[in-house]
Design a protein around this nucleic acid. Structure first.
Length: 189
DNA sequence: CACACGATGCGCT
DNA sequence: GCGCATCGTGTGG
């Protein structure tokens, strides 16, 4: 079932957790690409976010718009990254999709876009209405634990634990053994 | 207009 | 663990 506008409109951290286990779907050229979200990061108004300056720019403007839109940007001269816009219209917020299962080789944000055939041209598409790009709810299995830890590849706000991933999923780009041990150790006590 | 650098991935050490 | 490809974007002159 397709996620609706309201599913994206909450606080970014909540939307991030919600997206774990859901499916990104992209129909292009008669072909359907579909991957299960297993790793995400939350970006709002912290120092590492593209909205850190507090100002809208041509690049980050989608982050400031209504929730449920795709924010795709180009980086390192060769990679694209997919975000799902969160929060309400006027407030910046987005969830970076960092890893997918059930699709070939999509452990890492650049690989996610490569696997789904998404580019900068897909920036600004409405995931709640676009006929060819959407997110489906997914049933998370009870045994699948969510690891919460620090984000990857940033220089600022490195201590914030705003990355979430499904423990044991092959599509996770970088594991945090310490966080995993802590999670498992806390089980049942 | 110039320039520094990045929400990365890959190959080599 | 480290270096580098490669270019759009933001910032400052």
């Amino acid at each position: 079932m397709r996620l609706q506008r309201a599913d994206f409109s909450g606080p970014t951290q909540r939307v991030a957790r919600r997206l774990l286990g859901c499916f990104v779907c992209h129909r292009k050229g008669g072909e359907l690409k579909r991957g299960r979200i297993v790793e995400v990061e939350a970006y709002t108004d912290d120092a590492a976010s593209h909205s850190a300056s507090g100002k809208r720019t041509p690049r980050n403007r989608i982050m400031y718009g209504p929730p449920g839109f795709a924010y795709v940007y180009f980086t390192y001269g060769m990679h694209h990254c997919l975000n799902v816009v969160s929060e309400s219209d006027g407030l910046p917020g987005a969830v970076l999709i960092r890893g997918l299962d059930e699709i070939e080789h999509a452990a890492g944000p650049g690989l996610v876009c490569r696997a789904l055939h998404l580019t900068i041209r897909d920036n600004g598409r409405d995931l709640a209405a676009d006929p060819d790009l959407w997110i489906e709810s997914g049933n998370r299995k009870r045994h699948e634990r969510v690891v919460q830890t620090t984000r990857i590849g940033i220089r600022r706000a490195v201590d914030l634990k705003l990355r979430y991933y499904l423990l044991g999923s092959p599509g996770v780009s970088k594991r945090d053994r310490e966080a995993e041990a802590e999670l498992l150790g806390a089980r049942g006590s």
